[in-house]
């Protein structure tokens, strides 16, 4: 997540609407307590880790104790996207689209080795080596798969992160939409629209691919 500049810093451009208001930092605490105990994750399972995520939501580990039992199937109603498993190239456009559809403030957790960095399937031709190459990730939970308790630990890290934020006092002009992340396109390989220039340069003299330096 990009840090919103602090209101109290010098030279911060306060919009006319905001000037009429008074910022009180303690409200942030109340505001954050409300947010931290009602993080609604998206009901969105990808692979093996999703099973552990369901286990974490079930009786034994019980996400409800953290106010997270409301798994929403719609991105429009969720605050947290748990990327639970291997992200494949074929699935990637949907994931980015789902992320764009989530309302702000939103959090992303990369659960397991695959979502963090490709995991054991990293070398595969249809595997994205880390979802953070496309969408910003807040918390990484290592493990293959992380046990439900490891996942809960990761969720507590999200709560800690929420505690430090100042969404109430840090005024963002909500009349302007957030810039969505460009959705990758399925081509001969997945194409990230942000890479157009690099690709065009790279394919001039030959195919663009990884070049590994020789072993000394």
């Amino acid at each position: 997540m990009t840090e919103t500049p602090n209101l109290n810093t010098e030279g911060y451009d306060i919009s006319p609407e905001a000037r009429a208001n008074v910022a009180i930092t303690t409200i942030d605490k109340i505001f954050n307590a409300g947010r931290r105990y009602s993080v609604w994750p998206m009901m969105f399972g990808l692979a093996c880790c999703a099973i552990e995520m369901i286990s974490a939501a079930a009786g034994r580990y019980d996400l409800a104790r953290f106010g997270m039992e409301v798994l929403r199937p719609s991105p429009r109603q969720s605050d947290l996207m748990i990327v639970s498993g291997t992200v494949t190239k074929k699935m990637l456009p949907q994931i980015v689209r789902l992320y764009n559809q989530m309302p702000d403030p939103k959090y992303v957790m990369a659960m397991g080795a695959c979502a963090s960095g490709g995991g054991p399937f990293k070398e595969g031709y249809n595997v994205v080596s880390g979802v953070d190459k496309y969408i910003p990730v807040d918390v990484y939970v290592p493990g293959c798969p992380p046990t439900p308790q490891a996942l809960l630990h990761g969720l507590m890290k999200i709560q800690e992160k929420i505690d430090t934020e100042k969404h109430f006092t840090n005024f963002r002009d909500r009349t302007k939409p957030i810039e969505p992340i460009p959705v990758p396109i399925l081509g001969p390989d997945i194409i990230d629209p942000r890479d157009y220039e690099t690709i065009k340069d790279g394919v001039k003299s030959g195919p663009l691919t990884t070049v590994i330096p020789a072993v000394e």
């Binding site: 994205v128 080596s129 890479d195 394919v203 663009l208 691919t209």
Partner: peptide, 12 residues
Amino acid sequence: PVGKNNQYPQGF
């Protein structure tokens, strides 16, 4: 070159 698990044919 693109920092990802991608490859593209020549002249793409």
